[in-house]
């Protein structure tokens, strides 16, 4: 297990899954890849297929329609893999508290490894969260 996780901390490929966000979190995530923040220096790249992913990055509320699909996407990701929840919506319900279309939060559907709060979180915040996650994985390995 050791070397597998260690290699994973060096090159986490991220699949970006929006389960019903207002799209603002998603834009902040793309900001992390811009020249100013450049996440590729940590080996992080966005990939197009969940089959290539090591990390599932979930933004937004878990709506009823999305619950089944999100689980499916999680199953499609080869293990070992981690789940990152970004934004207040993904942590609880955020500004959509009390809506009838979302009976569950993200972490009731998927095993979330790290939460990054903010509405939306700043790119610095997202990078700090990811760095903490990598630190955590390194200690586990």
């Amino acid at each position: 297990m050791g070397i597998k996780l260690k290699a994973l901390t060096k090159s986490p490929w991220v699949y970006h899954l929006s389960t019903g966000s207002c799209n603002n979190c998603d834009i902040e995530i793309l900001d992390c890849l811009t020249p100013r923040y450049d996440l590729e220096r940590l080996g992080i790249v966005l990939v197009g297929s969940p089959r290539h992913a090591d990390a599932l990055l979930v933004t937004g509320n878990m709506t009823m329609k999305c619950m089944k699909r999100a689980k499916e996407v999680y199953d499609q990701m080869p293990k070992p893999g981690v789940v990152i929840a970004v934004g207040t919506c993904a942590l609880g319900h955020g500004v959509f508290e009390g809506s009838y279309v979302m009976p569950k939060t993200v972490d009731e559907v998927l095993p979330v490894d790290i939460y990054i709060p903010g509405c939306p979180p700043k790119p610095e915040g997202i990078i700090a969260g990811v760095a903490k996650l990598l630190e955590m994985l390194k200690q586990k390995a």
Binding site: A7, S11, E40, R41, R51, Q76, P78
Partner: peptide
């Protein structure tokens, strides 16, 4: 070219080793 820092030297090796350790679906 895009004015970024870019990945470290051993990045392709890390990618390769990591993929070897993943599950085959």
């Amino acid at each position: 070219v895009q004015w970024r820092v870019g990945p470290p030297l051993f990045q392709p090796l890390y990618d390769f080793v990591k993929l070897l350790g993943k599950e085959i679906i």
